[in-house]
Design a protein around this nucleic acid. Sequence first.
DNA 1: TTAATCCTTTGACTAAAGTCAAAGAACATG
DNA 2: CATGTTCTTTGACTTTAGTCAAAGGATTAA
Lengths: 293, 293
Amino acid sequence: MRALRRFNRYFTRRIGVLDDHYLGQDRPLGEARLLFEIGDGVSLRELRSRLGLDAGYLSRMTKALQSQGMVRVRVHPADSRLRMIELTPAGRIEVDEQNRRADALAEGLLDALDADRRAQLIEAMATSQRLLRLAAITVERVDGAAPDARACLDAYAADIDARFPEGFDKSDLVKPEEVSGDAGAFFVAYEEGHPVGCGALRRLEPGVGEIRHVWIHPDTRRLGLARRILTELERAATEHDLYVVRLDTHRTLTEAQAMYRASGYTEIPPYVDHIYAHHWFEKRLATPSEARP
Amino acid sequence: MRALRRFNRYFTRRIGVLDDHYLGQDRPLGEARLLFEIGDGVSLRELRSRLGLDAGYLSRMTKALQSQGMVRVRVHPADSRLRMIELTPAGRIEVDEQNRRADALAEGLLDALDADRRAQLIEAMATSQRLLRLAAITVERVDGAAPDARACLDAYAADIDARFPEGFDKSDLVKPEEVSGDAGAFFVAYEEGHPVGCGALRRLEPGVGEIRHVWIHPDTRRLGLARRILTELERAATEHDLYVVRLDTHRTLTEAQAMYRASGYTEIPPYVDHIYAHHWFEKRLATPSEARP
DNA sequence: TTAATCCTTTGACTAAAGTCAAAGAACATG
DNA sequence: CATGTTCTTTGACTTTAGTCAAAGGATTAA
């Protein structure tokens, strides 16, 4: 992947200084970075893992920022081993000011480009970022009863409950045992350690599987992640000797329908009656013998 | 320019480590960077300005690398104040090895993307880089006799001498006095301090100017720089009260012709007979009174 | 042929960045 | 409720990174 490295070289040399060298003019870079990561308050633990810092190092930087009146530290309300760090008003002013400066600098860097070219640049950067994010997400098979699986399903339920006019009843969710072990499969997508999407496969009848609960966290949509989860589910289906997969969708989920169609699914008559189902799809998967002619 | 900063943040956090932290695993970052910049041998002076290092600091790092057997230092053959630094065979092996590692790492980062998405990513990064480069180039008016102006014209002459079947005679170049002061204008484009393109304007007759010698360094083509130089030349024309500009091109320069057409130039009958001219163009510029109705 | 300038080395520092281990408070679990 | 784990703080470091000024050899300009 030479292209990535070439771009990285050029980019860091020309632009990478933006939030570092220039930004932390009045204080050490480490402290400046810290100040920026705090946002609306986080735990020290979170900061440590986000920035990959040594505990002692972080503790000392925190103390320094505290004595400068930039941050305030208090114990976590729920777990008093944890410390919450947040910006003081002075700290917020400082961050805003630095932001303003960096924006002005960024603006200056692109002075020479006309509006068309700027728009082109912004779009190209957005595309790059989108794809880099997608590349950083892993899709892993987990047990249907795993905490991350349940958390995703809860989020899914809340999400569609808000979206369906008739609401959504959680009793319609798959049972953990339906999607674990030999019975089916459950996949969770992780971005930087946090679950951001899921998808379930269960056996419907011999040779036929059903895909359910494909869900993507709102902040992670439009990256193409659903399709990746779908691919994993289909792979799992063939491993379970399910060479036909079906699914149903609600009429309000038009993007989902489009995605299924684009992924080779064809609309079929209802295979099951279901209060939330308005469209039914099916796809025939290649059997191992077909794959190796 | 929020978009640039947002991208920068994400990018440096996810990818920026590539050539830095990971690459310099066995030695300090400063030394690793130095090792990479050496390439096929440079002077310490050049390194200092390229990397923006303190003379003493550089001297010490050089000594460290030397004692590790990675580099060799000798006096510059032409100027014995200067030192040339070059990789030893061991140093070259080290650099190659680090390169291999970084490539593998980059490869791994994109594992999850399919071929289509990779291609999309590469294209988006190429577009970003192209536009960032363009944004970094400045176009400055210089005297027609300035060394940079003459250097560009020499490169231009050599370039088209190779391209025209009939060759090119340098006596056809504009004279410095034709494009200086009130008589005309000469622009040079600079990328990181080096001239990478030029363009000349001279008075043809009252109210009519001629654009000549628009040239872009081969490594800098396809960025859209020619159009920027053209814009500067047109601005200079109106400042010189030349509200019509003309130019001619050789039949082999088809991209140039396309660019002139796209920039509002229309083909006209020959306004001057000329051995190298096969197409003639003209554009009417807005007079100040038109611009402010 | 001086004087001024350029390039590098060396000595003497400082500040930032980061590491490691010990210890104490709070929590989780059997 | 004893035990192990988690999170933070503190002390005691080391390594990098970087700065400044003096000095000496080479070159250039006057």
